[in-house]
Design a protein around this nucleic acid. Structure first.
Lengths: 360, 360
DNA sequence: TTGTATGCGTTATCAA
DNA sequence: TTGATAACGCATACAA
């Protein structure tokens, strides 16, 4: 007589009993390992079918040490860019018979740390992380130390040796900005969601997100190539919503030498930025030129269509997941994979208005 | 001497040994159940810390019967609507200390069935499903029968008794179409991604997606209220990509009595539709009016801004997850929750061009 | 409060 | 090819 109740679900023992074989044989037949005669296999299958038996994957995992699931940690699935990345990951995972445990951290480091812990506790076979911070990465290194493979995607961290799949977006950004310069722009502003740790921004300053860092580098390189001054006031951060974007834009337009071109760090910023411009009655590209550093379908639709840097987001997800599976299958770590975004030229870039220098 | 090697990870036994207490006491201290003296708790915590011990959630789950994770089955996370829903679900889950196993099925019934099986095998504590089909739902009923709670979201199935959270979009659609009628439209077309099982569409026909069914109902009701003929040729399906949308639009414009207003079933269709209109040089709302049955931020940005039905997608996710947790906590099932979308009037609806009837 | 022994549902080992 | 039994890592009933 059992002292404790089971879960009430059908187990392999029930199947074995009905099939008239030992538990071990039934397990072998169901699991497809070891050797079992065709006749027994038939009987077991039949019994399993009849009882509606489904193996308990948890119990299996505890024995095999493999959970057949991947942990994915990302800041914001709501951002269409990450939506697509997630889709790429999920497709590869499904193809491998794995499923995906998704943790959305809202770009909070504390939540990211918690999420990683939870995922490790659940013994995921590997982790895909898009880190919130370049520098606060203790929890990520812990994972590697624990022996479970990790692949970083989209963003870098400040130590090397980990697998990572990234966009080579510095170069594409440089190209896009070169396009602005070629059109005659000298005052080019950059607007990002990233919240700066420091009060103001200084060129060359370390930024805590590699993706933002790359973008800024690309812009600066383009400017320096043409001997154009890098003006810190044209690098604006903390553009987290419509209101802050509008505020930032308003301040920059009041500058003695306002920007003639605006570079939006991603599609969300671009959306708010374009709405703000529209609200102010500014016309693109007549009054101001615009470039967005992440393409989205609607960029083609607005008037004028927006010049953008198109990132292969789905591919990023696919490659990251593929790299992780290679690690799970025993491959060496430390590999870096770089994907190449491309500039898609549309109609939002034109010549700057001849701006008049304020006297004094 | 152990015959089999463990996973190599630190277990509660190791912690117990180092702390100099029994395995049970260590487990109690770590798990926070049963009674343990403060002194032992201290020693155990200390030992766990030192060894870097992390409990194996799988082993715990197998005992408790609770996995602390939710399964989410959805057709397409890439669709921003579902992206937001997922975010809502994920936030509630995290608040409850659960994590989310996400299965993206690409709207394939076979994949949906497989996904549900996998999730059940992994003993998720509950499932949130956005079903691909109203009628092929055996796998969903199986879940309920297995005793694990399910909440359907966004879409209905053809049997009652299950928990479900849905948009009351028939009514909002009726309102939006009423707006078109009020503006003078009589030829109103509807374009949906749904692939029809039958060859053509007949008014009153059963559709396999409740969300599409509701939209069609809303349109028909508005038309009937104004004694306008419901013309099957104005209901077009299978608009899965830009090309097919363009083809559908082309055919409809060649009709003897072409539509003067277009209703896009969701934001993806709307995007393709607007691009197609733009490509053809048709102007909104002068040449044709447009309404989209799912609002997205860019709808406000395009020229003219697009009148849309705004669905509280994040709320849908939140409510669905909340309902599921209530079921997990023992609440009765069979509840239906309805959310109310609203028409957001913008500039894409105008008076129809006086169209000339073809003679003969 | 503590320790022992057993159970969870599976896989792995070993002898038959 | 089979069956008995240990092992996985933890939770829990029971006795101490």
């Amino acid at each position: 007589m059992a002292r404790r109740q089971g879960t009430g679900e059908v187990t392999i023992s029930d199947v074995a009993r009905l099939a008239g074989v030992s538990k071990a044989q039934a397990a072998r037949a169901m699991g497809g390992y070891g050797s079992v005669s065709n006749e027994v296999k038939q009987r077991v299958m039949q019994a399993a079918q009849e009882l509606g038996y489904r193996p308990n994957a948890l119990a299996r995992s505890i024995n095999t040490g493999k959970s057949q699931s991947l942990g994915v940690v990302v800041g914001d699935v709501e951002n269409p860019y990450f939506g697509l990345v997630t889709r790429g990951i999920s497709d590869v995972a499904r193809r491998h018979g794995y499923d995906v445990v998704l943790a959305n951290t809202g770009e909070s480091l504390a939540d990211e740390e918690k999420a990683v812990k939870m995922l490790l506790d659940k013994r995921v076979d590997g982790l895909l992380i898009c880190p919130t911070s370049r520098t606060s990465h203790g929890h990520i290194l812990d994972v590697e130390r624990s022996g479970r493979p990790v692949v970083l995607f989209d963003r870098d961290i400040s130590v090397s040796g980990l697998d990572m799949v990234q966009m080579r977006i510095a170069e594409a950004t440089r190209e896009a900005v070169q396009g602005l310069i070629d059109a005659g722009h000298r005052r080019i502003a950059y607007i990002s969601t990233l919240k700066l740790a420091t009060d103001g921004f200084a060129p060359g300053q370390d930024l805590d997100l590699s993706t933002v860092s790359q973008r800024v580098d690309g812009i600066c390189r383009a400017l320096e190539d043409s001997q154009i001054e890098v003006d810190p006031v044209l690098f604006q951060f903390g553009a987290s919503d419509r209101q802050s974007v509008d505020g930032i834009l308003g301040e920059m337009l009041e500058l003695a030498e306002p920007p003639t071109a605006l570079v939006a760090s991603d599609s969300l910023v671009a959306l708010d930025l374009l709405l703000s411009l529209k609200g102010r009655g500014l016309r693109i590209p007549h009054d101001v030129s615009v470039v967005m550093l992440d393409d989205q379908p609607w960029a083609e639709l607005v008037e004028p269509p927006v010049t953008a840097v198109r990132q292969p987001a789905y591919d990023l997800g696919e490659q990251a997941a593929t790299a992780l599976f290679e690690r799970i299958d025993g491959a060496e770590g430390g590999r870096e994979i770089w994907l190449t975004p491309h500039v898609v030229t549309r109609g939002s870039v034109g010549q700057p208005l001849g701006q008049v220098r304020q006297p004094g």
